[in-house]
Design a protein around this nucleic acid. Structure first.
Lengths: 342, 342
DNA sequence: CTTTACTTGAGGTACGTTCCTCATTTACGC
DNA sequence: GCGTAAATGAGGAACGTACCTCAAGTAAAG
């Protein structure tokens, strides 16, 4: 009738409470045969550990650090905000997270920050950065200190991160390609692709996916070489002006990365928004505005709130060594238009 | 340093533990002035009730009932599956949910089911059905028995439901309209709209949103009167065959409701999928397949997993009288294409 | 001043788990 | 069969909250 407890399991297995405890918590000093007996009893009774009691007894606290890139970025700002909100909501669950800003182009300072972290008591790290050998080493060091590490937004596949929370960049690029192609059905012309830097892994991957779909399904469209803004407003204006002059048959524009505020300004200044299909990444105040006024047709995004909550849940699961509920953690590629704006 | 407890609050406020307890749990017998003292202490110390300890002490169990419409529906099946999965994941949190099937076209049986529920111990109800006076009364009865009720997928706005978990049908229709319009840019022709029944509230609302967007932004498209399938495969084939004969300029098709498996068969049989834009609702095995083979261009969906988890969280919050974390509970309108299929 | 109702304090038990200590039993190699 | 190590049992304290009882206090009404 009522929920079985450890006592019931002990009874059922014909062992003492202490032994059940040893088995349940993976402590040593129990014969394999006895372990099996307990496990049988557990599954027979359908015993599930009461997380409330467990967490209370264990006096567990989760102190996480979240490392986000420095510098002005509406996307990172949104992320930070969502994190603060989620932390407030999880205070009752003994989860706290502190945000650290790390400079983008100084791998040594990243490492220094990561090292500094180790001084404080720390139960998990989420990090959004580009992968360098130094970062890789630093993560390895964290890991061997027993601190779980998850990569946030951008994956660090060659590092020993425990998990990646974010969307698949290739699929995101493919989705952009599909939408742009469908929006330009029957049209032939050029596609201008804009990115902060072609060196970033996710830019490369998005471009890969984008090109693959356009090449296969939309032969009328010619994808131009990527234009790089280096996340610099002045440079953005300059390269867009040049592109507007150079290419006369631009039918669609795909912005692969951050810095959409300045980019949109530059496009408007060069009359490149009118009558063209435009797809950008990440829902921010700037891109939301552009959706509403019709400059942007679709935003490829990821649910920031979900991203953050998922990160916290995964770090927690890694700390406790509990299984991760994959279906809940998969970050979907959101397509946002003027009409389904959240 | 460490998290404040009730003891700390008692100390800070200069009252006893019992008084703090009375205030925190809204029990009577405390002077307004003392209440204020305690509240001040709480906010000064930043005290947050430890949910683990609280739930443990309170021996809370959450027994929910979920009422879903009977009959063959891939959407409902998916929902049921997600629910089972979520329940398994939440067993540790003392949450359990039992699914009941209710017949769609028999309001009296719905009421009977709802009445029967009251016999068993019950902490919350989620219900997906169409609104009738009988349902309205039954919900009112549940409510006055102190059982929180949330409407699932389809809202019951004139009933006294505590919350609606689902997407806004008007926006969903607008999104479909926008996409279909954009996919058919420059094309002029007719739009075939298919629905199980024009009597259902969500069909009406979707159509409303759809028409509004097409009328405003895509004057080249003429939306035809809705064709009703009554969720019957034979009838579906019949009406589609008739439509294929009657209308010779169908450029796009919008399916507003369930029954997409038979509908897609009928469309293929009448060669209505080729070269036309097609948008349907709800991601199911049938629509997923159709996305992959190119028959369907986009699916307007809702994240079923999120829907279910959100429902459980909201019922739980209603039981405990805790605030609802709105941002997390808003169900987005998903646009699913071949390339961002989850 | 007494009565009465309301307010507060003090102290306890319970929830199910974790983690600890110490005693006892069992198994196995010599 | 003895010694040693491994396995198991028994019991208890702690975690922070909820909820209960009973006593003691205070204030207002009579």
């Amino acid at each position: 009738m009522t929920r079985p407890t450890v006592h019931d399991v002990a009874n059922e297995a014909g062992v003492s409470l202490a032994t059940v405890d040893r088995v349940l918590n993976g402590r040593p000093g129990v014969r394999a045969q006895t372990v099996k007996r307990v496990q049988t009893a557990v599954s027979k009774l359908g015993y599930v550990r009461d997380t409330y009691a467990a967490n209370l007894a264990r006096q567990r606290e989760y102190r996480f650090a979240v490392l986000l890139p420095q510098g002005p970025s509406q996307f990172v700002d949104t992320l930070k905000e969502a994190l603060t909100e989620a932390c407030a909501a999880h205070a009752a669950d003994r989860i706290s997270a502190q945000v650290f800003s790390i400079p983008l182009n100084d791998p040594h300072r990243v490492v220094r920050e990561l090292r500094a972290l180790q001084a404080t008591p720390l139960d998990g790290v989420a990090i959004m950065t580009t992968e360098t050998p130094q970062v890789r080493d630093a993560i390895l060091r964290l890991k061997s200190a027993g601190v779980p590490v998850v990569a946030l937004v951008a994956d660090l596949p060659s590092s020993s991160r425990d998990y990646f929370v974010g969307t698949d960049s290739i699929s995101a690029g493919r989705t952009a390609g599909f939408l742009l192609g469908r929006f330009l059905k029957g049209v032939s012309g050029e596609i201008l692709v804009v990115t902060p830097s072609m060196l970033a892994r996710d830019s490369i991957e998005r471009r890969l996916g984008f090109d693959a779909v356009i090449a296969r399904d939309f032969p009328g469209l010619r994808v131009l070489p990527s234009v790089e803004t280096h996340a610099d407003p002045d440079r953005t204006h300059a390269v867009i002006a040049r592109a507007a002059e150079t290419y006369r048959e631009i039918a669609g524009i795909y912005s692969m990365g951050a810095g959409n505020g300045p980019l949109l300004e530059a496009l408007r200044a060069n009359r490149l928004t009118e009558g063209r299909a435009l797809i950008v990444h990440e829902l921010t105040p700037a891109t939301r505005q552009a959706l509403l006024n019709g400059d942007v047709d679709a935003v490829i995004g990821q649910n920031i709130g979900h991203l953050v909550r998922s990160t916290l849940r995964i770090l927690r699961a890694k700390c406790d060594n509990t299984p991760i509920y994959e279906a809940q953690e998969r970050i979907r590629i959101d397509i946002v238009t003027r009409e389904n704006l959240p």
